[in-house]
Amino acid sequence: MDAGVSFEDRMATVEFTIAPDAHIVVDGDSCRGCTTKACISACPAGLFVPTSDGGVLFNYEQCFECGTCYMVCNVAGAITWNYPLGGHGVSFHRS
């Protein structure tokens, strides 16, 4: 349908300056009890990945810093969200 444009192709068009530390911290214990795990499908950068033990693995490096994950999260405190260190993270050019 979308000839040749994979999700990886999409993400490869975005510039990221990776910060030394994660600006988002996911509490794996909280996630194991979560039945919806909405962050996995809703994150536009696809940064949340389910693990075999029912938890959630998170990569902060290609984050759009949009806030979708903590807004759709239904477990209080599971996702701790901040902005990355100044000058790091995503940089848009044609947005």
């Binding site: 999409r10 068009t13 975005v14 759009f64 949009c66 806030g67 947005s95």
Partner: peptide, 9 residues
Amino acid sequence: ELIEYSAHL
């Protein structure tokens, strides 16, 4: 040709 993908709340 896709040149930038982006998202925002």
